[in-house]
Amino acid sequence: MKDKLTKEEVLHVSRLARVGISEEEIEKYQVELKKLLDEVDKIKEVKNYDEELLIAPYDHDTVLRKDESGEMLSNEEIMKNVPASIGNFVEVPVMIND
């Protein structure tokens, strides 16, 4: 069994998570991520289990909300933490397609 991920594998997960990593960090992640992945691989050892899922330990089903409107934010509140804005709009510093 290999003891680290390939450089490409590290770059792939870095892109999946949209977390940039520097050249110098890659080697460190090759080892660290591999350690974590080996640990989660232990799940493959478990053979006996039934098909039912536990998504979360809910004690009830969803109770639906009435279709009635509540308070909304002022533009001032919306913009309080926004890094960049123009007029009423939140600005994305780059151009995006729809």
């Binding site: 909300r65 279709d67 009635e68 409107s69 509540g70 308070e71 909304m72 934010l73 533009n75 919306i78 007029g87 009423n88 709009f89 939140v90």
Partner: peptide, 22 residues
């Protein structure tokens, strides 16, 4: 609908930008 799917702000976006937001 009157309100949005996962929040109770108004479902209507013909109005002033960012006015129906929580």
């Amino acid at each position: 609908t009157k309100t949005k799917i996962f929040s109770n702000s108004i479902n209507g976006y013909g109005t002033t930008a960012n006015s129906n937001v929580n």
